[in-house]
Amino acid sequence: MQNGISIQKHDGVHVPILAEPIDEVMLGERALSFTRRSIKKQSKLAAIYKCIEMIDLTTLEGADTIGKVRQLCSKARFPVTAEFSEELSHYKNFKAVPTVAAVCVYPAMVATAKEALAGTKIRVASVATAFPAGQILLETRLRDVRDAVSAGADEIDMVINRGAFLTGDYQTVYDEIVQVKEVCGDTHLKVILETGELATCDNVRLASEIAMQAGADFIKTSTGKVSPAATMPVTLIMLQAILDFYERTGKIIGMKPAGGIRNAKQAIHYLCMVNEVMGPRWLTPELFRFGASSLLNDLLKQVYKQITGRYAYEKSFSLD
């Protein structure tokens, strides 16, 4: 027996959506166990580099300007200065600092970011669907997605309809994701559950299932505009949902915790979690991302520390 709901697809076929119950306390204990991992020396440096590669460097402010976005793109391309790299290159375990996975901006800034990142492999992700609340008519949200895609976004980060979800209208949640996916075409779709508003573990798990069934390429915890944003337990629920979905369907879905991951230590804990829950297969930017802004600089500080043995200070790196 499995608890669950049924969703009707376009073609009239009903798909069952599993509703696995989650025990919050034991979930929390498992999540906490990853924070007890002690990652040292060469493991730490390798993990830090991997984390940098996994960052969706993000700016999502009302105050965003073309100047600000260009600045961010520049940081994405050159996290550290050439001079810095040169200084570090004299140490024996030096390795060139990688670039981040993507830059994440509002739709209006996609063209700017695209231009600033031209010629790099850094992708441009755009939040869409009336981010962060999504409380706008569907047509308008789809238009939002269409605009971002046509402006050149490589990835779309949409929000689910939490209002519909919380009233039990899972069909609407599903249908909307399907429609967004259609508009996206080949553009990668990350589906933001906004777990802070879903409130319960069971809801997070169910929403993950709906999003994956509806065609999400990634599922993502949060907009960063609601507290709590990403947490280890919530990410663990979603990772386990991804693993189960893979084992049932063979489809591989990515995971993006976003918001609240500010330092290298936290990021490494997440990396341990992915490693131990999912196995090394998911330890790639294709399948795991951090939605973050201040995380990058802390990772860079740790690079400096690991390579030189000295603690870095704020001024070692540009703010953004």
Binding site: D23, E24, V25, M26, G28
Partner: peptide
């Protein structure tokens, strides 16, 4: 003695 977690 019975234990049970408290959570959502």
């Amino acid at each position: 003695t019975v234990w049970h977690p408290i959570g959502f």
